[in-house]
């Protein structure tokens, strides 16, 4: 039977304003993890019952790296955890990016804000097949680490680094082309990327976010709208936690 794993914290550091990088020692999770999958993290404050979904950012043997932004009390609790403390983790969950399908193809990895972390493990898996385009408000994080795997372009909202604007501005300005797009970021970005992929006629996979309770496909809390009737649910919806979080952009309505 699968179960939650108690994972020791090996390292935790602040890598930006409110952004933390957390390394956990796992038994099976890190080894089974695929780029684009996520885990559920369980806090110890019992007034907060629901686990927090966080994407897999990197793996190294039995170690798992998560990079998260403090968005509220749950993630704030994680940011206080110190070396040697334990955290309960369930996963890996969800489907992840289609690395097999990308074999021999050039892929643009588009990450916006806190959608950047899952792209790092994806870049590691694709290596020189990938070009990463990272969109920030102003403060950069993880950029050097992407550079270890693939070429990187940067866009910032205020123009303080790279191209002024968003990831698509950087794609257009750099004349970047590819056979496939993988994207993760805020909804407005995903909408723009989906439209861009349609215009360029490139297959595009996007990673979605939704409020979750179970994380394993049972509660139907995390659904998104789909263009076709889902084969399991028999309605025009898909579960982000189980059928996603990565979807072909034409499968879902944004």
């Amino acid at each position: 039977m699968k179960q939650k794993e108690r994972c020791k914290i090996i390292r935790q550091e602040r890598i930006g304003t409110d952004i933390y990088s957390l390394w956990l020692q796992t038994g099976a999770i890190a080894q089974a993890a695929q780029p684009g999958q996520f885990v559920m993290l369980y806090g110890t404050d019992r007034s907060r019952l629901l686990p927090r979904p966080i994407s897999i950012c990197q793996t190294d043997g039995a170690a798992l790296r998560l990079v998260y932004r403090v968005a509220g009390e749950g993630t704030r609790e994680f940011s206080y955890l110190e070396l040697g403390h334990e955290l309960e983790v369930l996963g890996p969950l969800g489907n992840g990016f289609p690395i097999q399908e990308a074999k021999g193809k050039q892929v643009l990895l588009l990450g916006g804000g806190i959608g950047i972390p899952p792209m790092l493990e994806t870049a590691a898996a694709l290596g020189n097949q990938a070009t990463a385009v990272l969109g920030y408000r102003n403060e950069l994080f993880l950029k050097e680490e992407f550079e270890a795997f693939c070429p990187v372009s940067v866009a910032t909202e205020d123009g303080s680094s790279g191209v002024k604007g968003n990831v698509l501005d950087a794609v257009r300005e750099g004349n970047l082309s590819a056979d496939m797009l993988f994207a993760c970021g805020p909804l407005p970005m995903l909408r723009a990327v989906k439209a861009y992929a349609q215009e360029m006629q490139i297959p595009c996979w996007i990673s979605m976010e939704e409020r979750m309770a179970c994380g394993i496909g049972a509660c139907l809390g995390c659904v998104c709208d789909s263009t076709q009737e889902d084969a399991h649910l028999h309605v025009h919806r898909k579960r982000v936690c189980k059928d996603g979080p990565v979807f072909l952009s034409t499968e879902v309505k944004l």
Binding site: L49, E210, R211, A213, C219, V223, V235, R237
Partner: peptide, 11 residues
């Protein structure tokens, strides 16, 4: 039944 729109859950 296709149920309600999201968000469907709040802690």
């Amino acid at each position: 039944w296709s149920g309600n729109p999201t968000p469907r859950i709040a802690e």
